[in-house]
Structure formats: C-alpha cells, structure tokens
Write a protein that binds this DNA or RNA. Structure first.
Length: 440
DNA sequence: CGGGTTTGACCGGCGC
DNA sequence: GCGCCGGTCAAACCCG
C-alpha cells in the first residue's frame, strides 16, 4: 500500500468513520482504493480488499461499496454520509432520468431508421421483381433468335464469332453490365449422390480438372454445350469431409432454349445469380449495403442458411444433404444465438445494421416473436423437405432442387421477405461479398 | 470420325 | 517481384 501523497481519511463519518483509505499516488486510468479501519493503530491497519475504482471514468458514478460508504462524495466534501447519500441519490435519479430520456430519443431515431429501411426495402424488392421479369422476357427473346441463328448456320460458326472467345470470358469487368456481372454469381448445390455428376437436364462438356487446395478430390470444370457460346459453367467436386456429398456449382445464364428437364434448374440458378448480383453492390467497406432481397431470404432459410464471406463470388449454396425428416427437426432444435426480447417483428433490413455478416441464423426467439409466420415457415420447410426427399431418393432431381432453390431465393415462400429478421450477432461481410445460404 | 475426356501448360489475380 | 492458386486452353487420347 502506498503511503505517500493522496492519502485521505474520512474519520468523522458517523457510519463509516472507522474507515480510512489510501489512494495510490499513481493516478492513472485505474486507481486502487484500499480501505482500512482508522481506529486501529497504524501498525494494525490491514488493508481490506474492496476492489479497484476507476476514477477516470466518464460517468464518474458514485461508488457505493458494501459498507455504504460514498467514496467520491466523502472525499470531495468531507460531509456526513447521510447528506452525501441523499445528495447522491438525487444525483443518481437525475442521471437516470437523463439516461431514460436519451434512450427514448435513441429509440425514436431507431424506429425512424427501421421504418425508412423497411420502406426502401419494399421499394427495391418491387424493383427487383420487375427487373427479374424484364430479364426473363429479354432472355426468352434472345433464346428464340439464337435458336433461329443456330439452325441457319449450324456448326460452322466458330467459338470466337459468338462474342464469347475462349479465355476471354473471365475478363469481364464486374462493374460493367448486370449480364457481365452474371458470370460472377454462383448457385451451389450440395447433395448426396454416388453418381459422378448430378443430372440437371443440360448437356455439359468437361474442359478441365484440377486438384483444389484443401480437398483430396479433384474438381471438374464443365461448360454447357447445348448451344454455341453458352456462358454457363459448372464445377463438380466431392466434399472433402464427406465424399458422399457432391457439390455442384452453377455459374452464368443459359443463352438458349432449354429442355423441360432443365428449365426449372436453369431459371432458378439464373434467378439466384441475378438476385445476388443485384444486391452485390458494395460500399466502401465492402458491406452489402443495398437493400436486397437476398438477405431477406436468409431469416427463413437461416437455420438452413448461413452467410459467409470467404469466396470471390456471391454464392447461394443449398445444402440438401440432410434427410427430409431432419429438416423440421433441425430447425426446431437449432441453438438460439440471437437474443432479442423484442415483441415486435424486426423489419428485414434491420440486418443492415450489422457491420458484417456470416453464419446468419434464425433464432427460436425470433420465431416465437413471429407467431404469424409459423404456418408460412412450416410450409416452406415442407417444401424443402419434399425437395430433399426427392433429391435423396433420386439423383436426377432437377425439378425438386429447383423448387427448393426457388423457395429460398425468390421469396416464393409467403412473407419470407417481410416481417422477419435474422441473427446479425455473427455477421461478417468482407469485400468478397459471398453469400451462402445453405439449407440443412 | 466425331464427340468427349484427360492432362500438362498457361494465364491472371492475389497475397506476401 | 515472386510464388501460389484457381480457372481455362488445347493437344493428345479414348470411345462408340
């Protein structure tokens, strides 16, 4: 105990007058206050451990220990503790009132922000839907023209003449057009399959194989061969942890008519890619900062959906490896990570308040806070269950898979985009903007 | 012979 | 600047 300067003794206090205390002269950020009975001889004074006090705290709150001693007031005024106590009680009360007022003010501001964000979201959602419809229409037009052109010139057309010269496609500037950007979005599907490749209704030609880092299984590279110059690629690789799981990643949009068996998958992957890219505009910090339906799907798919931020491309990943019956079970038993005691459904875009995001999860708390969503949630889960059942039963699962993806990405599930929230407690967004929503 | 696969080489991006 | 790595190319090869 330092006996030097700063030693203060409140011996006159009628309640705690037998206490004295030493202040360390080294008044830095943390100053130790050690108390001892002053009615003892100095030789018998033993320090009593009363903890450490931060005298440089901004709040300068009264320090009341178990003895009832008001340290700072006693030190400052040297007056009776009753008086000090009363004064500090009033002070504390006024401080609390100020704090409450401040909280109310903050609450009002936050409500305003939430409302504004929600409005922005709704407007952009509408815009997004319109864009999707426009693109679908234009794609249909292009496909018809392409079909006619293909029939006319047949296979005489060189790969370079279609504007998709090999090796040039990846050089597309992501900042150019949405269509160019489309090459940068992926839809990834995880499914259990013994087959080397899932059958999705399209024709593919393998153009490469590589050993990817961290996975003993090679990754196969395929391109669509149903039309000359179709930009669609896919990658097929087995999961390193579980080799029965086949991971298929789709990239790009078909520029040609598709057979019925491939339509659902193609439109779905295209929609997913479009959805991701529409919202992948990055701010200065790389955060997904536009109001964006992709994020709003996450709450409901969130136990099935995780968002990570480790890939160069925005990616929707559907994990369909869970047995059908485990879907609902999993959703109900997943750990609640996000404790929000709010009785009011938090607007979907509340997520944007998180500075980063990864591993979004819908908590049971949120679910319970959204009783009106229960049926929708259940039907959505049922859709996924059905899809998974079909997929696990038959690797030729295009329609079921597409249904599942569509349910997740397009907001087909009622109110998926509305009145939901998600866990942003583990939110993590890097500049890579990868979005992975996996269904488990 | 045509179409698909294999595989080593090449290229560009990125981190150090 | 260098090395690593993912993605692609293209010649060689295989197969029906």
């Amino acid at each position: 105990m330092d006996k030097g300067c700063g030693r203060l003794i409140a011996e006159n206090s009628d309640r705690v007058g037998f206490f004295g205390f030493d202040l360390s002269p080294r008044l830095n950020q943390q100053t130790k206050v050690i108390m001892f009975p002053v009615n003892l001889s100095p030789a018998d004074r033993k320090p009593m451990a009363l903890g450490e006090v931060d005298f440089f705290s901004d709040k300068k709150r009264p320090i009341v220990d178990h003895t009832g001693l008001q340290l700072d007031a006693a030190v400052k005024d040297g007056i009776s503790s009753d008086h000090v106590e009363d004064k500090l009680a009033k002070n504390e009360l006024s401080q609390l009132q100020v704090a409450i007022q401040r909280m109310n003010s903050d609450n009002q501001k936050l409500r305003g922000m939430v409302t504004e964000v929600n409005n922005n979201y709704n407007a952009l959602h509408l815009e997004f839907v319109e864009l999707m419809q426009q693109q679908e229409n234009s794609r249909s037009d292009r496909s018809e023209k392409e079909l006619l052109r293909t029939k006319r010139i047949g296979r005489e057309e060189s790969p370079e003449s279609d504007g998709l010269a090999p090796n040039k496609v990846p050089k597309l500037n992501p900042d150019q057009t949405p269509e160019a950007n489309m090459r940068k979005a992926r839809v990834s599907v995880r499914a259990r399959s013994e087959a080397p490749m899932i059958s999705d209704g399209c024709q593919w030609r393998k153009y490469g194989q590589k050993m990817a880092k961290g996975n003993p299984c090679p990754r196969g590279y395929y391109r669509c061969t149903m039309a000359v110059g179709c930009p669609v690629r896919k990658q097929v690789q087995r999961c390193a942890e579980d080799k029965t799981i086949l991971i298929t990643s789709y990239e790009g949009t078909h520029n040609h008519p598709l057979p019925q068996a491939a339509v659902a998958m193609a439109s779905t992957t295209s929609a997913a890619a479009n959805m991701l890219l529409c919202g992948s505009t990055t701010g200065t910090d790389g955060l997904l900062n536009t109001t964006f339906p992709a994020r709003t799907i996450l709450p409901y798919s969130s136990n099935m959906a995780t968002i990570s931020a480790s890939a160069p491309f925005p990616t929707v990943t559907l994990d369909l490896t869970q047995p059908p019956n485990s879907l609902q079970q999993f959703q109900r038993t997943s750990p609640a990570q996000f404790k929000v005691p709010s009785p009011v459904p938090i607007p979907p875009m509340a997520q944007v308040f998180g500075s980063k995001f990864s591993g979004l999860q819908m908590s049971q708390d949120i679910e319970s806070a959204l009783p009106s969503q229960t049926e929708h949630h259940k039907s959505f889960t049922d859709t996924l269950s059905a899809a998974t059942a079909a997929i696990t039963a038959d690797p030729n699962f295009t329609a079921a898979l597409a249904a599942a993806i569509t349910s997740v990405i397009s907001g087909a599930h009622p109110n998926i985009s509305d009145n939901t929230t998600n866990d942003n407690s583990n939110v993590n967004a890097s500049t890579s903007n990868k979005i992975t929503s996996s269904i488990q």
